[in-house]
Amino acid sequence: MAGVIRRNKDFHQVGTGWNVVLNLIAGIFAFLCVFPFLFVVIISLTDEKTLATDGYRILPAQWSLEAYRYVFQSGDMLLRSYGVTIFVTLVGTVISLIMISLYAYAISRNSFRYRRFFSVFAIVTMLFNGGMIPTYMVVSQLMGLKNTVWALILPLAMNAFYIMILRTFYSTSVPEAVIESARIDGAGDFYIFLRIVLPLSLPGLATIGLFSTLGYWNDWFNALLYIDVPNLVPLQSMLMRIESSIAFIQQNSQNSSLSLTALQSIPQDTSRMAMVVLATLPIIFAYPFFQRYFVQGLTVGAVKE
Rank of each mutant, 00 (worst) to 15 (best):
M1P: 14
A2S: 15
A2P: 12
G3S: 14
G3P: 09
R6C: 10
F11M: 14
F11K: 11
L22Q: 12
L32E: 01
V34K: 03
F35K: 00
S44Q: 01
S44F: 03
L45P: 12
L51A: 09
G55A: 04
P60Y: 04
S64D: 15
E66T: 12
L79V: 03
R80M: 10
Y82Q: 00
T85C: 09
T89D: 13
I98E: 11
Y103L: 01
A104I: 07
Y105D: 02
I107D: 01
R109D: 02
F117K: 05
V120C: 04
V124H: 01
M126Y: 12
F128V: 10
G130S: 07
G131I: 04
Q141I: 07
M143D: 14
K146T: 01
N147E: 02
W150R: 00
L152F: 06
A160N: 09
Y162D: 15
I165Y: 08
L166I: 08
A187G: 02
R195F: 05
G204Q: 11
I208C: 13
S212E: 15
W220C: 04
P234K: 06
M238G: 09
S244R: 11
I246V: 08
S253L: 09
Q254D: 15
S256P: 01
S259E: 15
I266A: 06
R272Q: 14
A274I: 08
V277E: 04
L278A: 11
Q291H: 03
F294M: 11
G297P: 00
T299R: 11
V300P: 04
K304D: 03
